[in-house]
Simulated assay, not measured.
Amino acid sequence: MNRSTILPHFLAALSAIIWGVTFISTKLLIAEGLTPLAIFIYRFILAYLCILPMMRRFLAANLRDELTLALGGLAGGSIYFLTENTALGITFASNVSLLICTAPIFTVLLERAIYKTPLRKSLLGGSMIALTGVGLVIINEGMEFEISPLGDFLTIVAALLWSSYCLIVRRMAKKYDTFFITRKVFFYGIVSVLPFFIAETDSSDYALLAHNVVWMNLLFLGVLASMLCYLMWNVAVRSLGADKAANYLYVVPLVTIIASSIILKEPFTVYTFTGAIAIIGGVFIAERGGVGIKRTSTSAMTENA
């Protein structure tokens, strides 16, 4: 690491650390009474308002691309975050952050199914290791007899949705810049669920925004975790390259586990630790063995923030 890359390395690491805390922030908002839908709407509106001044074009080049971007807003926006946030309400934040790490593996498998991308031995081996880690996390939850496995299932669904979004980003990135794609995802994510939000929200729900813990966490999620981290991450990717910057993504679940243990007093058991090592190690091996996964994972995680 030379002097010219110190700042990009720092920005990549800082982004990963902040993203690791977003699971805790969301869980705190749910505890305050906000619904997963409300958290998503407030977060995306803040992020959209932040990125709006950078708008260079309003519509895609054709209707097909516009519809594809709208699908991205569902798969990587509204449906994804609603599924993930619902899971956070019924399972440990550390569990969610770990299971979401299987998304790159699902991405490679979808690439294989759609684009006939060859599978390598390291990919298959890494997938098995990561899935073993998933099993350990679920076993840990079952042994505690405190939470329904539904949260784990919803997290896996969220990972599959994110994988689908990765493929959409991969396709659209050939035609449009990342600012335009991200803004479109924010927009369609908001409009796809805004009617439901208006219908189920009353004045007492809006009153929650006056609570310090609520608006502070929403500002963190919308402005810092979504907008600022997106900018920092792109500086890191532009300077270091996607492959080197992507390595910092594996810091996210470790930060979540540590933060969950400290802030939420969630148990840190040997199963959780072993599952964490297996998932992170397996995904790392699989990512090294998958063609194009580095680029896809990096592009996608900028929007998960």
Rank of each mutant, 00 (worst) to 15 (best):
L11C: 03
L11Q: 09
E32P: 06
L37E: 08
R43I: 03
L49G: 08
C50E: 09
M54P: 12
M55P: 10
F58D: 06
L59M: 09
A60G: 05
A61P: 05
A61S: 12
R64N: 12
R64S: 11
L69D: 01
E84G: 02
E84W: 03
A87F: 02
I100R: 02
I100N: 00
I100F: 00
T102G: 00
F106E: 06
E111C: 06
R112D: 08
P118W: 03
G126V: 01
A130F: 00
A130D: 02
V134R: 01
G135D: 00
N140E: 12
M143T: 06
F145N: 15
D152C: 02
I156C: 01
L160N: 04
L161M: 13
K174Q: 13
D177A: 02
D177F: 08
S192Q: 03
P195N: 01
S203G: 15
Y206F: 15
A207D: 15
A207F: 09
L209I: 07
L209M: 07
N212K: 12
V213A: 14
N217H: 13
L219M: 15
L219V: 06
A225V: 07
A225G: 06
L231E: 14
V237M: 12
L240V: 05
L240Y: 10
D243L: 06
V251M: 09
V251L: 14
P253Q: 11
I263K: 07
K265E: 15
Y271M: 08
T272W: 03
F273V: 04
G275F: 02
I279T: 02
V283I: 13
V291F: 11
G292S: 12
A300R: 04
T302W: 07
T302K: 09
